[in-house]
């Protein structure tokens, strides 16, 4: 059991945990967190693969890929978070206006919206 396999294996575990969370949880925010954990697992694995044995300098190519990958992942996460917050604002707004016009039925609509986003378990 080499240290590289230990590191890479930890990356795969992170990837699997993130994938499971991404598939199972319904709220977008939790999916996004799961997706980021998957990404971290991939970065972990890349760093492990860069190891070329003791005494040799690590392979710089995977290191460079991880470096740019981190910044791209952060910016993509920012875009997803911005979309999510606009979506929530639009949702809240839609249920509020439905409440004003339809009275009783709108409550159910708001409940539906809430259930879609934050399912009770």
């Amino acid at each position: 059991m080499s240290p590289a396999f230990l590191y890479g294996g930890a990356g795969i575990l992170l990837f699997a945990l993130g994938l499971w969370s991404f598939l199972v949880h319904e709220p977008l925010l939790r999916k996004l967190i799961g997706f980021n954990i998957m990404g971290s697992g991939v970065f972990h694995l890349f760093i492990a693969i860069a190891h070329r044995g003791d005494g040799l300098p690590p392979d710089p190519v995977p290191h460079a890929l991880v470096l740019t990958g981190i910044v791209v992942a952060v910016s993509a996460t920012a875009l997803a978070l911005a979309l999510n917050s606009r979506l929530e604002a639009a949702d809240a707004n839609a249920s509020a206006s439905a409440h004003q016009t339809h009275g009783r039925g709108a409550d159910e609509h708001a409940d539906d919206a809430k259930r879609r986003r934050w399912p009770t378990r």
Binding site: I12, A16, V61
Partner: peptide, 18 residues
Amino acid sequence: LLWIVYITLSAETGPRLA
């Protein structure tokens, strides 16, 4: 995936970009 990584890492490394 773990199995694939294990056999990849334990195999002789071929030519690398490094």
